[in-house]
Amino acid sequence: MKRLMIGATLLLSLVANAEDGFDDDGFDTEPVVIAVDHAPEAKGLLYGSFDIEAHYNVNNDQDLSSLKSLVDVIGEYKLDNGNKIKGNLQGYHDFIYDLDGSNYIATPDGYENEINLNELTLEGSLNSKLDFKVGRQIVVWGKSDSIRITDVLNPLDNRTPGLVDIKNLRLGRTMSKLDYYVDEYNFSAIALHENRFTKNPAQYSDFKSTPDKATNTPDDSLDNSGIALSLTGAFEGYDMGLYFADTYVDKAYLKGDILQYDNKSKMVGFNMTTSPRWWVLLITK
């Protein structure tokens, strides 16, 4: 009987040692030497990126179609009262139009150089439940991934069409935003002061061969201001939101030979994000 017990113990130990890689556990044993950096606590911070970007078009015999140097600068400053000033300045120069070998017969309007103050805001809290943010800003209206049905407040840089949810896609728009928070709910009210519209491909670019038309856009007067309201909530297992906006439609219609942007529209949208799927419903008038 004692021999049997020893046999059983041996077998158990064999089962244990048969564990994959158990004899050689695989853990690294060399010492880890890491210098711990501490990010400086500063009231103000300026940071950003410089990128070189090249596009090669395989479809229209233009070969290299863009050779851009891009600068993206972000600044933040925290005031003594806790409010923050934030800004984002973007700019680029496209060297493709400087090259002798370029296949472009003309430079599309606004493609060679650009400086865009995409964001400049003052934000803070009025009390423990009320936040404000004023200035040129980006507000994602609706939280669907990959598609942008309810996301109508900010125009896009759509000169390279079809891109979704990438950095610098949305163009800032001057707004005043108030957020009221209670429990899981957030009520937002926005006054849309600026009427800024999506940048679409221009003539002589890779995506447009027809002549550009004159545009007629509404000015930024008080009469032309828009409003937007939302009620959103984050709950156990799901998020949902109800969205309303009354603003100019970001799509022009042709009247005579002029593209008109004076079509105002009201939209109501609902979105629900739950694991593993999301729903979006949009009603516009």
Binding site: I138, V140, K143, D145
Partner: peptide
Amino acid sequence: ALKKTKRIPA
């Protein structure tokens, strides 16, 4: 970069 809060699905 996207100004967006994304729920991480299971």
